[in-house]
Amino acid sequence: MSVLSFRDVRVRYGSHTVLKDVSLEIGDGEVVGLVGESGSGKSTMARAAVGLAPVTGGEILLDGRPIPRRGPVRPVQMVFQDPYSSLDPRMTVGESVAEAMPGRPGKQARRAEITRLLTLVHLDPSRADDLPGRLSGGQRQRVALARALAARPEVIIADEITSSLDVSVQGAVLNLVRDMQRELGLSMLFISHNLAVVRYVAGRVAVMYGGEIVEQGPAAQVLGAPRHEYTRHLLAAVPGTIPTVKEPT
C-alpha cells in the first residue's frame, strides 16, 4: 500500500476557486476522515484525486509519483454516495465488478475473482448474476466497494458512502470498511459530514472549511480537543451528547 499526497492542490471552476492550495497526506494503511459542510470542497478533493475534477495548481502524488490516468492500472479508486446511481442498472453485479479488473482475465479467473470479492464484502456470490434492481441500498454499496477493490487499488476514496443508507445498514457498511482496512491494509480517504461516523472509522481527521483544511490531526485530538474555531462550532452542532473522544487503541 502507498501514500497519497495532495500538495497545494488548487481546483478552479471559472472564477470560482473550490480548493485553495490544499495539502493533505494519506499515509500507508491509514484512514483519514475528511469532514466539513457541503460546499467546503470535500467532494472536490475526492474527484480531483481520481481525475474527475481539473487540477489547476499543485499536484496529487502517489508514493511521490503522479497518479497514472491512462492504461489498465488505476491505483486510486472511489466509492460514491448514491448507491442507486453508482451501478449501471443494465449490468449484472458480476459484470459491474469485473469491469474494473485490470487486464483481461479469462472467464474462469474472472468468475473466481468475482466470487472472492463478493465474499470479501459479505455478499452471497450467487448474487453475481442479479441486476442491481434486485439489491437493497446497503447491498449495492457493498457491490460498489467490491468494484473499487476489483481494480486492486492502493488507495480508496469513500465519498459519503453511508449518507444515503438506513441507519441499520450504515453500521454494517462501517464495520466492513474497518474490517477491510485491517485485513487489506488499505489507505483510505473517508469523506463524511457525520462526525460520529468519521470518528468511528478514521485514525486521523481533517476539517475543511471554505476550500481549505483548517485543522488536521489524530481523530482523538481533533474531535476531543479542537483548536480551530470552526471545528469547535462543528462539534457543538452534533446532536446528542457532549462530545468526548476516548483514546483509540
Binding site: S136, G138, Q139, D166, V167, S168, Q170, G171, A172, L174, N175, R178, D179, L195, A196, V197, R199, Y200, L223, V238, G240, T241, P243, T244, V245, K246, P248, T249
Partner: peptide, 25 residues
C-alpha cells in the same frame, strides 16, 4: 435496542464492531 446500538455517536466504543441488525427491512 438494535436501532439505537447501530448508530455510532461521539461516545461509541471504537474497539468493538458496531451492532448491526441482521437481514433486510
Amino acid at each position: 435496542k438494535a436501532l439505537v446500538a447501530a448508530v455510532p455517536d461521539m461516545e461509541t466504543d471504537l474497539d468493538r464492531p458496531l451492532a448491526v441488525i441482521p437481514g433486510v427491512p
